[in-house]
Computed example of a mutant assay.
Amino acid sequence: MGQRVAGICYVKVDGAQLTIAGSCEARLMDVKRESVVPGFFKEEQLTPYIKCKAVHTPDFPLKKLVEGTDMTVVCEFSNGKVYVLSAAYLVDEPVASGDDGTIDLQFDGLKGVWQ
């Protein structure tokens, strides 16, 4: 019996659903571990994030996304896993692509939780 692990993902920002083209990405861990010597490691705190490519639809909530500094971003992956990013805000420089009508988005946040 097969099980779906890839396909459509859904992203909502403060309740507004975005149309996604392509994939979504989210961190699996909130720390980066590096071995110092065998059996001992150091940890570095990582910023939780969600990356996605959204379609720039006529009703795209551009102003909400650009001005938002305390948003909740929910990403539902095609395998049924859900990642919730709180106190989220856009980072980098989102750019609209006229060639394919999409916008690459990266939301960083205070806390990311897998459900």
Results as ranks from 00 to 15, higher is better:
55 V>T: 03
84 V>E: 14
80 G>H: 01
11 V>N: 06
69 T>F: 08
111 K>V: 06
30 D>K: 06
77 F>I: 02
89 Y>E: 14
94 P>K: 05
40 F>T: 14
37 V>G: 04
40 F>A: 14
71 M>F: 02
44 E>N: 07
32 K>C: 08
59 D>P: 05
97 S>P: 08
93 E>K: 05
37 V>Y: 10
78 S>V: 14
81 K>P: 00
74 V>A: 00
39 G>A: 04
83 Y>C: 09
79 N>M: 04
3 Q>P: 05
61 P>C: 13
38 P>V: 09
79 N>Y: 06
73 V>M: 05
60 F>Q: 03
75 C>R: 10
113 V>R: 03
24 C>G: 15
7 G>M: 13
99 D>H: 10
100 D>R: 11
87 A>W: 00
17 Q>I: 08
21 A>R: 15
76 E>S: 09
108 D>E: 14
46 L>Y: 03
78 S>G: 13
26 A>D: 14
22 G>L: 09
73 V>Q: 00
82 V>N: 02
6 A>T: 15
109 G>Y: 01
25 E>C: 14
51 K>D: 15
76 E>W: 06
34 E>V: 09
81 K>F: 04
9 C>K: 02
20 I>L: 08
28 L>Q: 13
47 T>F: 03
109 G>N: 06
65 L>A: 07
50 I>H: 03
83 Y>R: 11
67 E>T: 13
106 Q>G: 10
47 T>M: 02
51 K>I: 02
63 K>S: 11
71 M>E: 07
109 G>W: 00
103 I>H: 01
20 I>W: 11
5 V>T: 14
52 C>T: 15
94 P>I: 03
43 E>K: 04
99 D>E: 12
36 V>I: 15
17 Q>Y: 11
43 E>H: 05
82 V>L: 02
18 L>N: 04
95 V>Y: 05
71 M>R: 05
38 P>K: 13
113 V>H: 00
5 V>Y: 08
41 F>G: 11
91 V>C: 09
48 P>Y: 07
77 F>L: 05
111 K>F: 02
11 V>L: 07
70 D>R: 12
81 K>L: 04
23 S>Y: 15
12 K>R: 12
80 G>R: 00
105 L>V: 03
51 K>H: 14
105 L>Y: 06
111 K>Y: 04
69 T>P: 00
4 R>K: 05
68 G>D: 05
31 V>Y: 07
89 Y>C: 07
5 V>L: 12
103 I>Q: 01
